[in-house]
Simulated assay, not measured.
Amino acid sequence: MITLESIEKVYESKSSRVVGVDNVSLSIEKGEIYGIVGYSGAGKSTLLRCINILERPTSGKVIVDGVDLLELSGKRLREARQSIGMIFQGFYLVSSKTVFENVAFALKAAGVDRAKREERVLELLSLVGLADKANQYPSQLSGGQKQRVSIARALANSPKVLLCDEATSALDPSTTKSILSLLKKINDELGITIVIITHEMEIVKEVCDRCAVMQDGKVVEEGPSYEIFANPKEDLTKEFIQTVLDFQLPAKLLENCSGTLVRLQFRGEQAGESVVSDMLQNHKVKGNILHGKVEYIREKPLGIFIMEVIGEQVEIQRAISYLQDRLKQVEVIKHVSK
C-alpha cells in the first residue's frame, strides 16, 4: 500500500544544512497498523508528512497504492491526497463551525453535493460515537471528543490511508485508550491502512502490527511489533521497550538473594505452560519469582519473569539448561553468593 524508497529530506539555508530524513526505505502493507517511534527531533513527523507530500522529499520515491506521488502535481496531486486522511495532535477544528460543519468541510471541498454530504457526515459521526454532538461547537467538547471529530473529518472522503501524527499525545491515558480502540475499529471494519507517529511504546503495544524506530532521521530498527518487544536489537529500542517492560530490581531485594538470578521470557503459548514448575519438580533446586508480568502485544502474550534459583551450582546449571531448552530465551543476570 505504501512504499518509501530512499527518502531524504534536507533543509538548506545560506548558513546551514539540516537532514530531517536520512535515506529511509519502508514498506507498509495494505490494511495494517504501522507505528513509527522516536524521540522529538528523530524525523518521524517529517517522514509522515512526506507520505502525503505535505513535505516534499529532497529525493526518493513515495508510492501510495501503486502511484508515485512525487510524479504528480496540481490537480492530480490534490485528487491523490483525497485517498490519504490525516489527524494531528492539535485537532485543528474550526472553532466557529459546528461538529457537523467541521466534518462536512472536507466533503464540500471535494465537491460532494449537499444531500450526500449530510448523509455521509451523520454516518461518520455515528461511527466515531458523536451522533448526538452534531450541532455543538468544538469549545463544548472534551479533548477526546475533538479528536473523534478530526478522525471523522479525516475519513470523510473514504481514504485508503489514515496518517496519525502524535494523535493521542494531548490526551489523558483513559481517553488515549478509547481513541486507540476507535482506530482499531476503523482498521478492522473499513480496512484502512493506518500509520501512527508516536514516542510511546505503549501505543505500539496496543495497536501496531509492525513498527519502525527512528533516530537522527534514520530507521535504526524495524519489524513486527511482537518481535521488537520480545527481542530488541538496538540500545534505543531497548530504552523504549523498558518504558513498558520495566524490570529493574530494587537493591534491597538483591541484598537478600543467595542464588542465581535468571530472566525468563515466555512467548505466545509458552506463557500458559508450566515450565517453571516442571523445572522445580525435575531438578534439585528451589526457586523464587522475584518479579514478573505478562504483557499483551496486539493481544498476543509476552511473559517476562526474573527468578532466583537456589541450590548446588551443578544443579543450578542443569536447571538453567532445562529452561533454555524449553524457552530458548533465558538470561543469567547475576550469580549472588553470600
Rank of each mutant, 00 (worst) to 15 (best):
L4R: 09
S6A: 03
S6I: 00
I7E: 00
E8Q: 14
K9S: 00
K9C: 03
S15M: 04
S16T: 15
R17C: 12
V19H: 03
D22H: 01
N23L: 01
V24K: 03
S27M: 13
S27I: 11
K30G: 10
E32S: 14
Y34V: 09
Y34C: 09
I36C: 08
S40T: 14
G41Y: 05
A42P: 08
G43L: 07
L48C: 10
R49W: 04
N52A: 12
N52G: 13
T58M: 04
S59T: 01
K61A: 06
V62M: 10
I63F: 00
V64C: 05
D68F: 08
E71P: 03
L72S: 03
L77K: 07
A80H: 07
Q82M: 13
G85Y: 11
V94F: 15
K97N: 13
T98S: 15
L107F: 10
A109D: 03
V112E: 09
A115M: 11
R117A: 05
L124V: 02
L125K: 05
L125F: 09
V128T: 09
A131E: 15
A134C: 10
G144L: 01
Q145I: 10
R148Y: 06
S150K: 10
A156Q: 13
A156G: 12
P159Q: 06
V161E: 13
L162Q: 07
L163Y: 08
A167F: 03
S174C: 01
S174G: 11
T176G: 04
K177E: 07
K177I: 04
D188E: 14
E189P: 01
E202L: 07
E206G: 00
A212K: 05
D216S: 10
K218A: 09
V219I: 09
E221M: 02
P224V: 11
Y226L: 12
E227R: 12
F229Q: 05
A230D: 06
N231R: 15
T243R: 12
L245A: 15
D246Q: 08
A251N: 04
A251T: 08
C257M: 14
T260D: 02
T260W: 00
R263K: 15
F266Y: 15
Q270H: 11
E273S: 03
S274A: 14
V275E: 00
V276T: 04
M279Q: 03
H283Q: 06
V285D: 02
G287K: 08
K293R: 12
E295C: 10
I297F: 13
R298C: 10
K300M: 06
P301K: 11
G303I: 07
M307F: 04
V309H: 01
Q313V: 05
Q313I: 09
Q324D: 03
R326E: 13
R326Q: 14
R326P: 12
R326F: 06
L327W: 04
K328C: 02
V336K: 13
